[in-house]
């Protein structure tokens, strides 16, 4: 073997080693990145700001509203405040009057409020609606399917959906009047 050949061989070996090590490291790095990303998104069934709001259809039970049933996709082009609540939930009681006070004004501006009730019985909801004089539609999620679809945790939980059907903001917990109005302005059709 001549000196040149030896040098050539050595060079090749070094290159092979570099390729080998690089590819192993790349594979490992990819695995780590995958593990981290998928873990941070482990709750990826929860819809977050920027996601398309999944469609659903529910019976509407408020006597103050003429809709029989509501389907989210019917409100394309309108801003939608999708609120999950229950009659037994104190913070929900606190924010309902705010929602009602802003509803007439913002309904005219192209916003719909859908207050999905997670109650067990319609009666409790009816009485609540009467007590608070709510006029916006109250869809009733009797099988908890929509609750599971949106992975609703502690209520109240509110999704502000823009006219394009994308979630603009997710708010867990009760809203103050000012914050509520701010969010409504964000999703108001231009």
């Amino acid at each position: 073997m001549s000196l040149d050949q030896i040098k050539e061989k050595k060079k090749k070996k070094k290159r092979n080693r570099l390729v080998f090590r690089t590819s192993i490291l790349v594979v490992l790095l990819a695995a780590v990145v995958f593990a981290l990303v998928s873990n941070l998104k482990a709750d990826n069934t929860i819809y977050r700001a920027g996601d398309e709001a999944p469609d659903f259809k529910l019976q509407q039970i408020s006597n103050n509203n003429e809709l029989e049933s509501v389907q989210l996709s019917d409100f394309k082009g309108k801003g939608v405040m999708l609120n999950f609540w229950g009659t037994w939930c104190e913070p929900c009681k606190a924010e309902m009057p705010y929602m009602q006070s802003l509803y007439p004004e913002y309904h005219d501006k192209g916003i719909e409020i859908l207050a999905v009730s997670l109650d067990n019985t319609e009666l409790a909801v009816d009485r609540f609606i009467d007590e608070y004089d709510l006029t916006f539609p109250v869809p009733f999620d009797s099988t908890s399917e929509v609750e599971d679809l949106y992975k609703v945790g502690p209520i109240p939980s509110t999704f502000f959906i823009n006219p394009e059907g994308k979630i603009e903001e997710v708010v867990n917990g009760a809203l103050s009047l000012e914050r509520l109005e701010g969010y409504l302005q964000d999703i108001q059709p231009k």
């Binding site: 490992l28 695995a31 780590v32 593990a35 981290l36 873990n39 941070l40 482990a42």
Partner: peptide, 18 residues
């Protein structure tokens, strides 16, 4: 489930392989 804990576990894995 914190990222840094996962990174340490991942580094152990890498160290094991290499």
């Amino acid at each position: 489930t914190s990222w840094w804990y996962l990174v340490i576990i991942a580094l152990i894995g890498i160290s094991l392989v290499i």
